[in-house]
Design a binder for these strands. Structure first.
Lengths: 189, 189
DNA sequence: AATAAAACGGACTGCTCACTCCGCTTCATG
DNA sequence: CATGAAGCGGAGTGAGCAGTCCGTTTTATT
């Protein structure tokens, strides 16, 4: 029980774990969360046992994928925060989030299912809310977004826009108009 | 080939069919479309064979329930059409549809799934679009709703509002603001 | 009341899916 | 290299579900 007698992790194990996450990201995005895990293992060119050794339950795999997506979301948020005009930043953020959801059916479903409230994803949820809050607060202070919305609303409202493929930009524009304070006029497009 | 030799349908058969539809309406509304058909048969106090004799597949049962819901929807629409002010009629219609969706998870899911495009429900869909079109057209002519939306958009947009329990009124208000033509002011609440 | 058609219920079938078991392979280490 | 532990794949297991079969009961009719 002396010094660290831990071996270096095997190269193939590391490679397979990465393949699994990549496959899961792709398959969940394309087919939604209801696909069989076997499809993911097949896509990763790996046995199902290897999948379950890395992710003991299907939910664990979903968590890993959502975490990856949330990181993308945070990047979208950070990029939006660099925009000087608070209204434009807000708009860019919503468009970014919306496009992520349009492309990723799994992410969309996860946000609407009970999964998002599971303890395993609480950190992710907090991160999403924090970045949304920053961008929203700036826009509200600048008077370009109504005051009676919070960051929790953003996910639901944007999902709406993302729910019809090919129409999400139009829906988002309608939503943005609705989010303006009464009397404020639309930005010049 | 002579006169009508058709017997009168049996009383118990009629009764059971009604019980099944009632049970299905309730269970789909509460639990969504993913519940086992056995749960519906149990609620109706009927064997599963009786269920499948009336509705050969689960989808057939869903169709029957959706049809019932669409009839409620048409009533909501007709009531809204009686309102003189086109803007108020539109608003009342959206609120009515939204409340229906909030209370009926099955209906909500059906609208978002591939089911709604199945041939068995085409009639229903047409009916929904027709009533939406009437109310929408009046509101657009009166200049209280932007011209670049159609009746197909209404379902998606309203579903958005219905997606968070306890917040649908607030979301609907935001949506209604977004649906106003640029420059039009909100109605006095 | 007698009868036969119609309807009934619930055990059963076949399928899919999440998850496990175990004999075999591959890697890190001396 | 030799070796044994870590990792591997895929057949197997059990649960849950849509849909079927069939012996029994209920109904309308004479």
């Amino acid at each position: 029980m002396g010094a660290s007698t831990t071996r270096r992790p095997r190269a193939d194990a590391l490679r397979n774990r990465k393949r699994l996450i990549d496959a899961a990201v792709a398959v969940f995005a394309e087919q939604g969360l209801d696909v069989a895990v076997a499809a993911i293992a097949r896509r990763a060119e790996v046995g199902t046992a290897t999948l379950f050794r890395n992710f003991p339950t299907k939910d664990d795999l979903i968590y890993a994928v959502i975490e990856a997506r949330v990181n993308e979301l945070l990047e979208v948020g950070e990029r939006a925060l660099e925009v000087e005009d608070p209204g434009a930043a807000f708009e860019q953020f919503l468009f970014g989030v919306c496009e992520l959801q349009v492309r990723d059916r799994g992410f969309f479903e996860a946000i609407h299912s009970r999964l998002i409230d599971e303890p395993g994803l609480m950190e992710c949820k907090k991160g999403m809310l924090a970045i949304g809050l920053q961008i929203l607060a700036r826009a509200q202070e600048a008077g370009v977004v109504r005051a009676d919305v919070g960051p929790e609303d953003l996910g639901f409202l944007v999902s709406a826009a993302a729910s019809r493929e090919g129409h999400h930009e139009r829906y988002l524009r309608i939503l943005l108009d609705g989010l303006r304070p009464a009397g404020a006029s639309a930005l010049p497009s």
